[in-house]
Computed example of a mutant assay.
Amino acid sequence: MSAPARRTDAVQNRTRIVEAARAALAESRHVHLNEIAKRAGVGQGTLYRNFPNREALLAEVYRRDVEELVSAASALLAEHEPVEALRHWLDRVIDYAEIKRGVLAALEPVAWQDLVAHSHNPIEGALAQLLDAGKAAGSLRTDVDAHGALLLIAYLGRLERGEWESTARPLMNVILDGLRRPDADR
């Protein structure tokens, strides 16, 4: 009977560690594992059992953010009209991009290139789902696909960290406005 409880504890510990790492990345690019263990309320041994090194932990933060971003597309479409779902999803992209920047800055180039390569198609697929719903509803342009929209969004990565807060959301609104059909009701 105690094995399932430990298993639940292990899953909860792993989740707390990832959440603590994500929070630390939002604050600084310099993430120290002992600080993350303290934030998560676990010992260093627990952290290292789950993540043998810093790179493994940061890669898991990145993967979880991608999974959440991708799964959010369907959930948002179930709750909102396509343009509003897209707006909420793009807000999540901004949050995701901020963490992505921290992860990529903290990882070696070979490691982050592999992560980005594996996340591109699922993210593009989620965006295509949102755009297709808007096109079908007549609210989004039909001449822009997910690949083109991602190219526009990717340029936000060129923003300096200091200008991110004040600039990313207004620019994302410009992208959203550009995706709307000019003749669609707003």
Rank of each mutant, 00 (worst) to 15 (best):
L127F: 08
L33H: 08
E165Q: 14
P182F: 09
W89Y: 10
E67L: 11
V83H: 04
A59Y: 01
R6I: 07
R181S: 15
R87D: 14
S119P: 00
V61M: 08
V93M: 09
R101D: 11
E81G: 13
A184V: 10
V103L: 01
E67S: 12
G162D: 14
Q113T: 14
A20C: 07
L107R: 08
A136P: 02
V110K: 15
L58D: 01
M172W: 02
N173F: 05
A73I: 01
R16W: 00
R180C: 13
G134N: 05
G134Y: 05
L152C: 14
R181P: 07
R16G: 02
G43D: 15
E79N: 09
I17P: 02
E124D: 11
W112C: 06
P182T: 12
I153L: 14
A149V: 12
A72N: 09
R63G: 09
G134H: 03
L130A: 10
E84Q: 11
R22L: 03
Q12G: 07
R92C: 03
G102A: 07
A3S: 13
A111Y: 04
D95G: 08
E35R: 10
R54F: 06
A126E: 09
E27D: 14
V93S: 02
L151R: 15
G148D: 15
L156G: 04
T142H: 12
S71Y: 04
R16I: 02
S166C: 06
